[in-house]
């Protein structure tokens, strides 16, 4: 069996769904951030696979993936900083306890 574009895309879709499920269902803010990283990495897989199979001569998808990794790192840094500052205020990072404002 040879591994083709479909295999990578299915892997990417499965990872994306796992990440989305985790981001919506988990309570711990740090775990939610980790799930978001899974979603972004699923995108990276799709980008690189598309680039390899659709336009093998140019590296657009690989470049895009590198940019995504960089921005995701920045986002995670800011996210963890906010989690720390919320922990200092409330001594919890469970999303169910962070409920001062509701409609």
């Amino acid at each position: 069996m040879s591994v083709g574009l479909e295999h990578y895309l299915v892997l990417s879709a499965v990872l994306f769904s796992i990440g989305l499920y985790g981001a919506l269902a988990k309570k711990n803010a740090v775990v939610i951030l980790m799930c978001i990283e899974i979603m972004l990495n699923a995108v990276n897989i799709a980008m690189v696979a598309f680039s390899r199979y659709i336009v093998p001569t140019v590296l657009t998808g690989q470049i895009f993936a590198i940019f995504i990794i960089v921005v995701a790192a920045a986002e995670a840094a800011v996210g963890l900083a906010i989690v720390i500052s919320i922990y200092r205020n409330r001594e919890t990072i469970e999303s169910t306890d962070i409920d001062l404002m509701k409609w």
Binding site: G19, V43, T60, F64, I68, G79, I82, S85, I86, M101
Partner: peptide, 30 residues
Amino acid sequence: AKSTESSLKYLLLGAVSSAVLLYGMAMVFG
């Protein structure tokens, strides 16, 4: 307490939405 809470909500939802956006971009690129 309020400001950090809203910031966390904004960040988590914003990051999920940019992941969704990127997945869409990957499809269009594909």
